[in-house]
């Protein structure tokens, strides 16, 4: 790592004047420089470049010089049926797997864990968290095997005498959504478990004495008390789900016929299979804008904590 800019050691600063108040200005700025340089060059740089090439017709091969085309890539996108299809599928994927699936299941698991016996809690927690810790591609293979025509899901359906089908062909978007639920629920579960543990026992017990049933307690007491965690969790889940690529790539490659092609896969296909880097980047920029919007909402939710 010698190339990370020779880091000037801040030891030289004489702080004899105010020894107790700590060092002066250079020491406050210098330690930040390696991080700032890295972030500017490799994160802010690409984002700026992204904004630039989204307005050009840059292609992968055989082009002397790209030229500025204004909003062509964007108007093209909104007239492109494949793009609109990808937007729709991204929406379905996000709502199904993140808002409904991960979030609700995570909350349910966390709530049940409050009451369950310790061995069951540990076992379930361990299994769900393992699914989360596994590398994305491995998770993709496991669920590919699960949903394939000759896979485990159909074996179970056969055994129950229910009709089986080729899930990855008939309902690919549903299959990848379930895969994302399998992989991502642990995060919600952890966030909600932490939140539920912070609710004082007296409050729930008082409600119980007053005769509030399980559902009413959940709705009127528990949910309002953890609403900040719900907001944070929804935001982070959504942002994570918007950028899922590997899982879908391994399971379906976005197919068949684009029926599980969410925006990241569409962007990749345009840029590399169709060699239209400019167009692919325009789509990427839209995705980035949606992501930034969610990010800003998330910041507002956390506002008091910074």
């Amino acid at each position: 790592m010698t190339t990370t800019a020779p880091h000037p050691r801040p030891t030289k600063t004489p702080d004899a004047e105010h020894p107790a108040r700590g060092p002066r200005l250079p020491v406050r700025i210098l330690p930040l420089t390696p991080a700032i340089v890295l972030l500017l060059l490799f994160l802010a740089g690409p984002i700026a470049y992204c904004v630039y090439i989204a307005f050009t017709d840059l292609q992968l091969t055989g082009q002397a010089q790209e030229s500025f085309v204004g909003f062509d890539n964007f108007t093209r996108a909104f007239g492109d049926e494949a793009f609109l299809n990808a937007v729709w599928l991204t929406l379905v994927f996000t709502v199904l797997s993140s808002l409904i699936g991960q979030n609700t299941l995570g909350l349910a698991l966390a709530a049940l864990m409050q009451r369950a016996s310790k061995p069951v809690r540990t076992l379930t927690g361990g299994i769900v968290v393992t699914a989360w810790v596994l590398p994305e591609v491995v998770a993709g293979f496991l669920l590919y095997a699960f949903f394939r025509r000759e896979g485990t899901l159909n074996a179970i359906l056969d055994w129950l005498h229910l009709p089986s089908q080729n899930w990855l062909f008939t309902l690919p978007i549903l299959a990848v959504s379930f895969a994302n639920v399998w992989r991502g629920t642990a995060f919600s579960m952890l966030v909600y478990s932490a939140a539920l543990n912070e609710i004082p026992k007296e409050i729930t017990e008082a409600a119980e004495v007053d005769g509030a049933g399980g559902w009413r307690r959940m709705w009127h007491i528990t949910l309002p008390m953890i609403r900040r965690s719900i907001g944070t969790n929804l935001m982070l889940n959504t942002l994570q789900t918007l950028s899922v690529f590997g899982l879908i790539w391994v399971m379906t490659r976005g197919g068949p016929g684009g029926r599980s092609q969410t925006l990241p896969l569409f962007m990749y296909e345009q840029a590399f299979q169709n060699s239209l880097i400019g167009y692919g980047t325009a789509v990427a920029l839209l995705l980035l804008l949606v992501g930034s919007l969610f990010s800003l909402i998330y910041l507002r939710l956390l506002r008091t904590e910074v």
């Binding site: 980035l288 992501g291 990010s295």
Partner: peptide, 14 residues
């Protein structure tokens, strides 16, 4: 919380 996936195409080009 930015989706890093989205900037991979420009990173490649860069």
């Amino acid at each position: 919380s930015l989706p890093i996936t989205a900037i991979m195409v420009p990173v490649y080009a860069l």
